[in-house]
Structure formats: structure tokens, C-alpha cells
Amino acid sequence: MLKDITLGQFFPGKSFLHKIDPRTKIISALLYIVAVFLCDSIMSFIILLVATLILIAMSGVPIKIIVKGLKPLIFILAFTTIYNVFFYKGDTPPLVHWKFITIYAEGLVFAVIMALRIICLLAGSSVLMTYTTSPIMLTDGIERLLSPLNKIKAPVHEFAMMMSIALRFIPTLVEETDKIMSAQKARGADFNSGGLIKRARALIPVLVPLFISAFRRASDLAVAMECRCYRGGSGRTRMTKTRFGARDAFLFIAILLLGTAIVLSNIYSYYFPIWLT
């Protein structure tokens, strides 16, 4: 069960978004997140929703997988929705007024807006980055984006390499934790009863061997990397050469247009029928 965690949730494919330079995708994702927070009117939300659906279509990632990826959000979504429905105080007469429960129309609208905002935020940014970019490409993109920092002697390449190795080893170490816990359970360890302190203490015999093995793995990996002629970032080439092309310009302009459309729809929202504001 622990083995099934998907990290970075990369979905291999050859779609439009897959082929875009990771740098473009990282910047676009940041712009997209800003755009999501700029949304203020119903019209702007309609624009955002359409744009997000187009992004998903361009990524070639099945909706099913994206919905599955949203599952961890259920509690946050449920909490914000309930909170907004029941506690939002509107100016119009309430829709329902029964004992202590008061529900306003604005509350309902606001709840939907918040939920949409959260869903779009996650779906859009993960489609732009994690679903369509392998972790290595992603760290590669970060490395290249941060490369100006090399001038002030910041170890950008080392940082990116550390990140990708960490990503690579998380599933391995999770699996190992599982194994050690089973081994300790077989010898009578009890992880599931007692108070917080007792449980935390029960984890010590798991963490110690895990640490030792992690260090052993690190030293093995260092030797293996040296054997494969690794000597840091200088003189290295990359298999997938990334270059800004027409695709990148297209995505960039599209995201900028999205932002502009959202800002404009906020400013001119009074031009739209009243129920759209």
C-alpha cells in the first residue's frame, strides 16, 4: 500500500504541454496561480474554468486521473464549503432561516467560488507542471531558471541534483520503512496503542535502522555515480535539449491573455448582467 504513492505524479505522454520547456511551464504555472487569485467576478471564474479545461485537454491527462489527484483536497473543500454556506453573512434577506441556521444566497455563491478556486488552483498548476513534466525535467528547469545565481557562486547544480535524488529515493525509503516496521512488529513492537509520546517512542527502533541504511545507500550511490563519470555540473550535457520555441511563446501568450481577461472582467464586471457579478 505504501508502495503505491505516486511522486511528482508524472503522467508520461507526448502532448502539447509535455513538449514545452520546463522553464516555460514553471513560469506559466506561477502566472496561472496569480491569475487564479485575481479572479473576483463570476465572469472571471467562467473564463478561468474554461481556460483550465483547455489546459487539461492540451495535457492529454485523463480527467479521471486529475479527479483522483484532487482527492486529498476533499477535507479542505468540504470545510471551506460548509464554512461559507453557513457562516457567510450577506446583505440580502437570507434564503433559509431556521432556528440557528441562516443561509444567504451570497454564501452559496461564495462557497462555490472558493471551491472552484481551490480546484482550479491545484488542477491547473499540476497539469502545467507535475503531470506533464518528469521530476528530472522539473529540477532541470529549476536549475536553469536559477542558473544566474551561479554568478554569486550559489551551488545551483548541486541543489537540483540533490532534489532529484531525494525524489528518486523517497519511494525506496518508504518501502524500507514498511519493511523495518514489519520486522519490528514481528518481534512484538507495538505502534498502534498508547498516547502520543508512547507512539513516538515506539518509532525510535524504526528510525535508527532507517537512518543507518539511508547513509549506506548514500555512500553506495556516491560510488556508483562516480563510476558513471559524474563530476558535477561542468561539462555535462542533457539528453533532452530544451529550447524556447513557438510552443513556449504560445503558452506564454495564452497565460498572459488569461490574466488580462481576468483582470478586465473584474474591472468591467458591471457591464455584465447583475447575476454575473
Binding site: L7, S134, R168, D220, L221, A224, C229, R238, M239
Partner: peptide
């Protein structure tokens, strides 16, 4: 001894170096 999270990217590690 595997460095990357995708098989082909791992195989590319040596030649990249």
C-alpha cells in the same frame, strides 16, 4: 545505483556526464 526517477533518464546519466 539508479539516480533518476525515469528509466531512460537514468540510462542517460552516464553519457550526460
Amino acid at each position: 545505483q539508479l539516480v533518476a526517477t525515469i528509466v531512460e533518464e537514468d540510462v542517460a546519466f552516464g553519457p550526460e556526464n
